[in-house]
Amino acid sequence: MSDRLTETFEAQRDRLRAVARRVLGSHADAEDVVQEAWLRLSRQDAASIENLEGWLTTVVGRISLDVLRTRRSRPEAPYEEIVVTVDDGPETDAELADSVGLALLVVLESLGPGERLAFVLHDLFAVPFEEIGRILGKSTAAAKMLASRARRKVRTPAPPAATGASQREVVQAFLTAARDGDFEGLLRLLDPEVRLTVDTPDGVVVVLGATNVAAGARFGAANDGRRVLVGGLPGVVAWREGGTPLSVVAFTVTDGRITNIAAVADPAKLASMNLPEPPSPPGTVGGAR
């Protein structure tokens, strides 16, 4: 391969990695996809490629699509991109600005491979539908339809730039109301159009509206867990007895009300996340009885 082609690929590497990362939700898988694209390019006649950037996007899209389809039979899709850290207050806010959002990733898990690819490529990377159609082996109109269908399902609000004290207070009040069974208190804290998405072993469950969310507001005993930041948002991690993760929940707070709740309760996916250690039981030293 010529030095010029190598330089051109390296100039595109970060963009290609970003595309694959957003499609797959996994840094490790994205690296593998980009490496495979490099190998395919090395076997190509460079003179036959008119638009290298478009060619590489197509190749990365098709490889990512194959990975998504494989995951349908191997559902333990990784969540290692989600940054979860113990919430020690405002000093931890700034470290998580570029983290993948749990709300978006959970909803993307509910999309079919074609929907997910069309949505990410078009809405996040402005790839034309004509090109997306070629990647999917479908018409331009069909690619538009897939992206539109995905967009209706996603509808995740943009997270705030940083988690402030007021957002933490709203989440704490919500968890307290859930623990106490204070239905009216829950309704006061929830936006009327709040959206709850839960990634379970049986698939993604979506609950819409304050009344419905408040009616089932105990998320895997999350109120008894450890306060954390999940992708920069206030959240909570709960563990089973023995230290096995039970659930991770993230809250989006806008104008003093909770507008979005994203939770992962699938053991296989929880196992792929880099979670903090569970708090030591009372009366223990260094986590040992």
Score class of each variant (00 low, 15 high):
121 L>R: 05
121 L>S: 09
122 H>T: 08
123 D>P: 05
124 L>N: 14
124 L>S: 14
124 L>Q: 15
124 L>T: 08
126 A>C: 05
126 A>K: 11
126 A>G: 06
127 V>A: 00
127 V>M: 03
128 P>F: 13
128 P>I: 09
129 F>A: 12
129 F>P: 15
129 F>R: 12
129 F>K: 13
129 F>I: 01
131 E>F: 02
131 E>G: 04
131 E>I: 05
132 I>D: 09
132 I>A: 00
133 G>E: 01
134 R>H: 12
134 R>S: 11
134 R>W: 06
135 I>Y: 01
135 I>A: 09
135 I>F: 03
135 I>P: 13
136 L>F: 08
137 G>I: 01
137 G>H: 10
138 K>S: 15
138 K>Y: 14
139 S>L: 01
140 T>R: 15
140 T>I: 06
141 A>I: 02
142 A>E: 08
142 A>L: 01
143 A>I: 03
143 A>H: 02
144 K>D: 09
145 M>V: 06
146 L>E: 11
146 L>T: 09
146 L>D: 06
146 L>Q: 05
147 A>C: 15
147 A>G: 13
148 S>Y: 08
149 R>S: 11
149 R>V: 12
149 R>K: 14
151 R>D: 12
152 R>P: 03
153 K>T: 14
154 V>Y: 03
154 V>C: 03
154 V>R: 03
155 R>S: 07
156 T>D: 12
156 T>F: 11
157 P>M: 03
157 P>N: 06
160 P>E: 09
161 A>C: 01
161 A>L: 08
161 A>P: 11
161 A>W: 00
162 A>H: 11
162 A>M: 07
163 T>S: 13
164 G>H: 04
165 A>I: 05
165 A>C: 00
165 A>W: 06
166 S>Y: 05
166 S>H: 12
167 Q>P: 08
168 R>G: 03
168 R>M: 01
168 R>C: 02
168 R>D: 02
169 E>Q: 09
170 V>H: 07
171 V>Q: 07
171 V>D: 04
172 Q>H: 13
172 Q>D: 14
173 A>S: 13
173 A>Q: 08
173 A>D: 11
174 F>L: 13
174 F>N: 00
174 F>W: 07
175 L>H: 08
176 T>E: 14
176 T>W: 02
